[in-house]
């Protein structure tokens, strides 16, 4: 686009280096090509067809009473629904953050020299990527069946204390599972453990994408493995890690709708369904759910855009310089 302008504004620059430069400098700048562009009739046809469909769709939105727009907007922002929005946001954010931390730890385990850590990391990703999130949610919702109380003590005391002839137990602290594991906590555990499995693979791919010369250069400077990871490899891996993590953020946001199976009922989708069930007017609330998730995800996308930009500093610096040089040449 800008190439013809550049040439006309600065004819001596590119021409000067050529052998014919002396002659070219005397002539007037070459005339920009004015040609009839290739026609694309298919585009116009497609646009017309799409416009027709769009008109039909808008017409349906307006005329079909099932949408019941006044009812929809009245209830979309009702207090219980707003509480649902808040729960969903907090749950998604906390689960994603814990998931990222788990992911980094597990990825480092899988890339370590320690075969036990490698095996453990593999086991973790295998399990939590294999089990569906809704199953995990139900599982952690019912974990009290497995452990009614959580106890701290010396393991297997029921076997070895009688052997020593001592009655009683070696448990120092106990707390009922029901108080420890509120539905919200169960939801956070289920979602972040699952998220950790996916994040581990993303982080691992990111770490592997960093050129081996980078860690070698850092090692040659006398940096320890931890320093190399923290200062050199991980920051560069982030450029690869951030884009898919944005996907994961919107995925976990939507998967918070699964936690009503725990049951955690203060979550957005459940609340909207409740309004629909209570008023026998379900469909507008389903549309409201779509609108809410669309809004939140859109905000996330904007945030992701800026996050990605801040992790490509080295590249962007170069791009800006190129832009500066171009504008200087043009002026």
């Amino acid at each position: 686009m800008s190439t013809p302008d550049d040439h006309s504004a600065n004819p001596a620059g590119p021409a000067g280096s050529r052998p014919a430069g002396g002659a070219a400098a005397g002539q007037s700048p070459p005339e920009a090509i004015k040609a009839v562009p290739v026609r694309h009739p298919g585009r116009w046809v497609a646009a017309a067809v799409l416009l027709l469909f769009a008109a039909m769709f808008v017409n349906m939105l307006v005329t079909n009473d099932a949408f019941d727009w006044p009812f929809l907007f009245e209830n979309m922002f009702s207090p219980p629904v707003l509480v649902g929005v808040r729960t969903t946001l907090i749950l998604a954010a906390v689960s994603l953050l814990i998931g990222i931390v788990i992911g980094i730890v597990v990825a480092i385990m899988r890339l370590s020299d320690n075969p036990i850590l490698v095996g453990l990391g593999w086991l973790y990703t295998w399990f939590f990527r294999a089990v569906p999130r809704i199953v995990l949610c139900v599982l952690f919702g019912n974990i009290a069946i497995l452990y009614q109380t959580l106890e701290l003590g010396i393991p297997f005391d029921n076997y070895w204390l009688p052997l020593l002839g001592i009655e009683g137990d070696a448990r120092f602290y106990s707390v009922p599972m029901a108080t420890l594991l509120s539905p919200f906590v169960a939801a956070v555990i289920a979602l972040s453990l699952s998220q950790g499995g996916y994040m581990a693979e993303i982080v691992r791919a990111g770490l592997l994408s960093v050129d081996k010369g980078q860690s070698e250069a850092a090692q040659a400077l006398g940096m320890s493995r931890g320093q190399v990871l923290r200062r050199i490899t991980l920051p560069q891996a982030l450029r690869v890690i951030v884009p898919p993590t944005g996907n994961e953020a919107s995925a976990i946001l939507k998967d918070t709708s699964l936690v009503s199976a725990i049951p955690l009922t203060t979550e957005l989708f459940f609340q909207l369904q409740q309004v629909g069930a209570r008023t026998f007017n379900l469909f507008p609330m389903l549309v409201a759910a779509c609108l809410w998730y669309l809004m939140i995800t859109s905000v996330l996308m904007v945030g992701q855009h800026y996050l990605e930009r801040s992790f490509t500093r080295g590249d962007r610096g170069a791009q800006e310089q190129v832009r500066r040089i171009k504008s200087r040449a043009a002026s």
């Binding site: 050129d211 010369g213 980078q214 070698e216 560069q236 080295g314 590249d315």
Partner: peptide, 14 residues
Amino acid sequence: IGMVFQNFNLFPHM
């Protein structure tokens, strides 16, 4: 021991 590599291996994020 300082080392200089064929491909420079500067840290691009710094």
